[in-house]
């Protein structure tokens, strides 16, 4: 018997199955590539042959694509990433006080006290200080992002690179390259720029206390862990399933919800073979001009989003 968690993020779509002791038995890390429906379907195709529909006791979704994923799979719980990450971290270690989470398009800090979230912050209007910044620079240096951390650790010193925004950083980095600094030093400099940006922007005014969890896709980068430890002077812990924490949290929340409600809404793995279509149109009912998205499964409408008055969509569960 398993609990399914789905985290549809901007860069990756993660699926996990937890057993009844909340242990991870299956984890899938897929690229979203701007097609959340296809990504969820792909994951389900992989799970379909191994697990039966009735083995899933509860399903939860999170991430920026949580609503659409929930409509698709019939989720019992739809939760924002912040709560999901906090739940997963607390389940891993009850002593966590600070969670640093850096994903593809957003970064967050979550402050916990006595097992509850007491404060949090997310990056504001742009993606500076997030994984996409590193991704972009890796591309420019023609170094695979997976190898970034190793390069950074090999360098003995680092060059200072402006971290305010990816555009600033890029021109600064090019200048430094032209001066002849080696790649390792520049990459380590980039990690420091990102950490500086995170601490001055997202984490500004927040108390960072031990024990610190570092999760999200960027935690794979050893250079980032080292840069955080250097700046904070505290050891940073990377949980085993650092890139699955959102999905794990969603599964745990779904488990709790179903235990209260008594039954699951999970629609089963068969949707892997369905044909999904999404159409958007501008509603002409009033001057609001809402952009409505209509999701169809095998030509049956399964969900509508985007309208303000509730004319098209039903009220979404929170």
């Amino acid at each position: 018997m398993y609990y399914l968690g789905v985290d549809v993020g901007s860069v990756s779509t993660d699926l996990v199955l937890l057993n009844q002791n909340k242990q991870v038995v299956e984890k899938l890390y897929l690229r979203t590539k701007g097609k959340p429906i296809a990504a969820v379907q792909e994951g389900f195709r992989m799970l379909k042959n191994k697990y039966g529909n009735s083995e899933i006791l509860a399903a939860g979704t999170t991430g920026s694509g949580r609503q659409i994923a929930s409509t698709l799979i019939g989720a019992d719980a739809v939760k924002n990433e912040i709560t999901a990450h906090a739940v997963a971290a607390l389940d891993t270690d009850g002593d966590v006080r600070t969670i640093i989470e850096i994903g593809g398009q957003d970064s967050k800090i979550i402050v916990l006290k006595n097992g509850i979230v007491t404060d949090f912050a997310m990056n504001t209007v742009c993606a500076a200080g997030t994984g996409s910044f590193l991704d972009r620079q890796a591309e420019r240096l023609e170094i695979p992002i997976e190898a970034f951390g190793d390069y950074a650790l090999k360098a003995n010193s680092y060059v200072r690179i402006a971290g305010r925004c990816a555009v600033f950083a890029e021109s600064d980095m090019i200048h430094k390259q032209q001066l002849g600094y080696n790649e390792g030093e520049i990459i380590r400099g980039l990690c420091h720029a990102l950490v500086r940006n995170y601490l001055n922007n997202v984490a500004k005014g927040k108390e960072i206390k031990d024990k610190i969890f570092f999760q999200g896709g960027v935690a794979a980068n050893k250079g980032m862990k080292a840069a955080f430890e250097e700046s904070l002077g505290i050891q940073v812990v990377i949980p085993e399933h650092y890139n699955m924490m959102g999905a794990i949290g969603a599964a745990i929340i779904a488990k709790e919800k179903v235990e209260k409600a008594g039954k699951t809404n999970f629609k089963g793995f068969d949707l892997a073979d369905s044909v999904f279509q999404s159409k958007s149109f501008e509603c002409e009912g009033c001057s609001n001009g809402c952009e409505v998205v209509n999701i169809q499964e095998n030509e049956n409408v399964i969900g509508c989003f985007g309208d303000r008055c509730g004319k098209w969509g039903s009220k979404l569960a929170m």
Binding site: S64, G65, K79, N80, E81, I82, T83, D106, I116, V117, T118, D119, F120, M122, M318
Partner: peptide, 17 residues
């Protein structure tokens, strides 16, 4: 999506408090 996430998380925080 980003705004809804922040608002929901804030509401969660207040509820749990």
């Amino acid at each position: 999506a980003g705004y809804v996430t922040r608002i929901e998380a804030f509401v969660d925080l207040l509820e749990r408090r």
